[in-house]
């Protein structure tokens, strides 16, 4: 069996039904969901294109950041007075109401920063699916990126072109941007 070839089929966004149909046809022709990636200029839900649900760890990373922020706030509010105790008459040493403010701010800071870091980490982390891009995508096209064995290339092209696709070959070798 020959090596897989990466293709990019472009559909106009007005022909989204055709794009969804093309994904279904690719599946029928033996291309697995793992080897297909949809690229678009606006977000489409998985339901619209009939794709499996994608997952992300951003929520968990955000939650972990919130916990870290919370613990730092606990240390600052209740731990630091112990490091150098200064007791003032009639003043509580480790008051809870004022600590709530610090705990809230630092927990939210941890949540928000770690959410951003999560996006950043997931964006720059290596992707094992097919890669490719065409500037037309941000101009109102939907790109279906897929890799398939070279021997079924012709049948796939014929099917996709019948649905109105514009096929871009060997996208890996192209310069992604001008």
């Amino acid at each position: 069996m020959g090596a897989n070839v990466v293709h990019l089929a472009l559909f106009k966004e007005t022909e989204i039904d055709h794009a969804a149909e093309a994904i279904a046809r690719l599946r029928e022709l033996g291309v697995s969901d793992h080897d297909i990636s949809v690229i678009s200029g606006i977000p489409y839900s998985e339901r619209i294109l009939g794709r499996p649900m994608t997952w992300t760890t951003i929520g968990r990373i955000g939650l972990a950041g919130a916990v870290v922020g919370f613990l730092v706030a606990i240390f600052l509010s209740f731990g630091t007075p112990l490091l150098y105790p200064i007791r003032v008459a009639a003043m509580p040493f480790q008051p809870i109401p004022t600590s709530i403010v610090v705990i809230f701010e630092l927990t939210m800071l941890g949540l928000l920063i770690s959410t951003f870091i999560g996006v950043f980490v997931e964006t720059i982390s290596p992707s094992f699916g097919p890669r490719g891009y065409h500037p037309k995508i941000s101009d109102g096209h939907i790109g279906i990126l897929f890799s398939s064995p070279a021997q079924v290339e012709e049948s796939i092209h014929a099917t996709l072109q019948a649905l109105g696709a514009e096929i871009v070959h060997n996208v890996e070798e192209e310069r992604l941007w001008p």
């Binding site: 990636s37 949809v38 200029g41 964006t123 992707s127």
Partner: peptide, 17 residues
């Protein structure tokens, strides 16, 4: 690039924010 995964995580992050 605008892949499904990128959109998905961007939307999730925007919602959290």
């Amino acid at each position: 690039r605008g892949t499904e995964a990128e959109w998905h995580r961007l939307r999730r992050a925007i919602t959290i924010f």
